[in-house]
Design a protein around this nucleic acid. Structure first.
Length: 434
RNA sequence: GUGAGAGUAGCUCAGUUGGCAGAGCGCUGGAUUGUGGUUCCAGAUGUCGCGGGUUCGAGCCCCGUCUCACACCCCA
């Protein structure tokens, strides 16, 4: 007898019902918000031709892609995010889509990198994007959507940090950085909040001359769009593109006033992916900063043109649900976990009345009460233990006595109270707890 | 991919210079002849991650490998 050893690949996980129930609730909540904002679902395959995935995203990302030859010797890869497949999707179905096109996509993506808490090789993203509009309203709607998605999940301590690639490009050009210098400075800026000040300054000195350091240090102090404008205009005459972007940011803050302290301009936000062209944002949990960004994105006006040649503006954001759930679990956000989705279990006490158990289950289910029947005619103690472990709210108890009197005992398993009532009353009683 | 850790019962962990595999919680059965929170009694916890090596003898030492948690890199 030879057994295959049951095991999992690094970074890939099973979810038990108690965790899967939480995840499903989360996903349907997010889905509701996305649809509430008028985004429609699409699906794309997990596997794509590798050249599609590597089109643009940076060498670093390419290294982290799962890639291989399929059985027909095609070079393929598993999707690394949901944005690049969307660009491919838009290019392929351009004539069937109605622009501006608003879609959401909730699906797993795969990255072959090393694991850490809340970071896995397979994880879920919930992506929402607007393709075909460069209006500031699409920027505002995406930012507002991030805000409301998190609010609807009852998360309070989030901060959306926004910046623009246009600002950063302008800054780098003023500093006269070459491509290599831009890249290294960007990476360093991204780490500014994580590194000790001394280390950061040393690294900066290695990279830049004094004049450049003076410029960038002044840039770091900026915390709102007006001072950014002052800073920029002091250095050089502001080109139209930059002026438009500044105006856009002013409007975003004006239209997003209701978001209050959840939205902040942050000159350090750049983001690694090469395809961003305008606004970029990262959302962090203020009380769990170690998990990094949980809802990020930006404007990528050039990505679709990789596949069509035609420039189609686009903006989107993506929530990393696997990471978010891990972060929230740590703060005991979800309370007591349940092993079942059912509300009620009907005990099995007498084989002679089993058909009645089935009838009652049928009536409950018609009322949308999720119902289990205990299948074995086991000792009551055992059935209670089972019920307790699974976390039902109610148990329905019908033995010989109850059957003769044509009533049932409804036991509230949470507060240990018990009532002898009719079936109709039981239904009403259960529904009243929803 | 790089660096330094961890892996022993379902869970949290002890395990002495290498000498019979342990505790608490949980679990199963009973006390209790329909009632799960407490109590009492009894019982089972196991390929010591996996594979190889050294040794009379390995949970312990050596090599490899897998997984987990952390840092780097990158990002959700």
């Amino acid at each position: 007898m030879s057994n295959i050893k049951a095991r999992l690949l690094k970074g890939f996980r099973d979810l038990l019902p108690c965790d899967a129930i939480i995840k499903e609730k989360f996903l349907s909540n997010i889905k509701n918000t996305f649809e509430n904002y008028g985004f429609s679902p699409i699906y794309t395959p997990a596997l794509e031709y590798i050249d599609i995935l590597t089109g643009k995203g940076g060498d670093e990302n390419e290294k982290l892609m799962y890639r291989f030859q399929d059985n027909g010797q095609r070079d393929v890869g598993m999707r690394y995010d949901l944005t690049v497949p969307l660009a491919r999707f838009v290019a392929l179905h351009k004539n069937e889509l109605n622009f501006p096109f608003k879609r959401y996509h909730i699906a797993p993506v795969w990255r072959a990198e090393n694991t850490q808490k809340g970071r896995y090789r397979e994880f879920y993203q919930c992506d929402c994007d607007i393709v075909g509009s460069d209006s500031v309203l699409s920027d505002v709607e995406i930012v507002s959507l991030i805000n409301n998605t998190l609010s609807n999940l009852k998360i309070e301590d989030f901060l959306i940090k926004i910046n623009s690639r246009v600002f950063v490009d302008f800054l780098f050009n003023i500093m006269k950085l070459d491509e290599e210098g831009k890249k290294k400075t960007a990476i360093l800026m991204d780490k500014k909040d994580k590194l000790p000040i001394k280390v950061f300054d040393d690294e900066l000195e290695k990279l830049l001359n004094n004049e450049q350091i003076n410029i960038i240090n002044e840039y770091f102090l900026i915390d709102n769009i007006d001072s950014l404008q002052k800073f920029m205009s002091k250095l050089e005459i502001i080109p139209d593109e930059l002026k438009n972007e500044i105006d856009k940011f002013k409007k975003i803050f004006e239209y997003c006033l209701f978001m209050n302290k959840h939205l902040k301009f942050d000159p350090l936000i750049i983001r690694g992916l090469d395809y961003y062209t305008g606004i970029v944002f990262e959302t962090v949990l203020v009380e769990s900063p170690q998990y990094g960004a949980i809802f990020s994105g930006g404007r990528y006006d050039g990505l679709v043109s990789l596949f069509t040649g035609e420039k189609i503006p686009a903006i989107g954001a993506s929530i990393g649900i696997s990471r978010l759930i891990t972060a929230l679990e740590e703060r005991d956000f979800f309370g007591e976990k349940k092993n079942t989705v059912s509300d009620v279990i009907i005990f099995n006490l007498d084989e002679k009345i089993q058909s009645k158990y089935l009838d009652i289950a049928c009536i409950f289910r018609k009322e949308n009460i999720k119902t289990d029947i205990y299948h074995e005619n086991a000792k009551m103690k055992k059935q209670f233990k089972y019920a307790e472990k699974n976390g039902y709210r109610f148990a329905v108890i019908i033995g010989e006595d109850e059957n003769e009197k044509n009533i049932l005992k409804l036991k509230d398993l949470k507060n240990f109270s018990e009532k002898e009532i009719s079936l109709e009353h039981a239904v009403r009683e259960i529904l009243s707890t929803f």
